[in-house]
Amino acid sequence: MPFIKKPRTLKPLGAVSIGTGERAVKIGGGNTLPLYFFDAKLSNPPAVGVELTDTAWDAAELPLLAKAYEGAATLAERVACAANMKGVDFVCLRLEGADPGGDNLSVEECVKLAQEAAAACTKPLCIAGCRSEEKDVELFKALAAALQGQNVLFLSAKEEDYKTIGAATVLAYGHKVAGESSVDINLAKQLNVLMTQLGIPKESIVMNLGGAAVGYGFEYVSSTMDRVKAAALEQDDAMLQMPVITQVATETWAVKESMASQADMPEWGDLEQRGIQMETVTAAACLASGSDAVILRHPVAVDKIAALVAALI
């Protein structure tokens, strides 16, 4: 007896568009469970972003990464390199220099940097802060005004600051915003409810459900995304149907496997190869669990993940 394939038709979810004109990219809008593109004609594939910071990477042991940015002296030049990288759908600029515990750049300096970056960027732009809550709020308020009309995605608003960030980015200047919750389906949903109650349209919200590198409690990330996608697609839960974006690189490049030098861990071998695989494996696992967009750092990981998504379509 032959195998009987059952039809699995699901309603496409809403997508969030970032960037403008021909360069705009849609995030989300899937109509199948994650990567199950054989179930239905695909409405929109997952997107791959590349991140860079205003401060250049420490690429001492990462020759391939260094090569990708070879000759780029200014932030604008590095952004241009990133945007042209193979497989890149959008660019994520992290304003690490703003960190009050670090370089503590002023809001004005950051605005200037972001404007230069935006001018040089040929792909849609996504802006992440420096993980200092007070600074990010000030930063996003100023950046939203300075980048008016460019339809930027801001990462991220949390339950504590969604009002200010949501109002400044989406309501005042028509950008997009990611709501960040800490790996919990109900917290994610609550934040979506709160943001929509504030008046932010569903079409302007992306979910940043939190992340982890594989091996570091990734089961929570995976199960949370499994449940979010089941709720969105199979139970029609409108408050969980926003697209999911995952900052993979910030997680994977912060763990031992991607940081310990070969001198410290000789048996582990080449550091760059380890970092690439950590990032690639985590990114693939995120996509399989439900990320509609992943943000990566290494050009090899970006290329391979983008190609893999294409191969699955």
């Binding site: 590198a213 594989v214 091996g215 089961e219 071998g269």
Partner: peptide, 20 residues
């Protein structure tokens, strides 16, 4: 499979095959 592959994959597997 070298360390570069084993470290992430074994970590992932150990995570996923845990009783919630």
């Amino acid at each position: 499979i070298g360390y570069a592959e084993a470290l992430p994959l074994f970590g992932l597997r150990q995570n996923i095959y845990t009783d919630p």
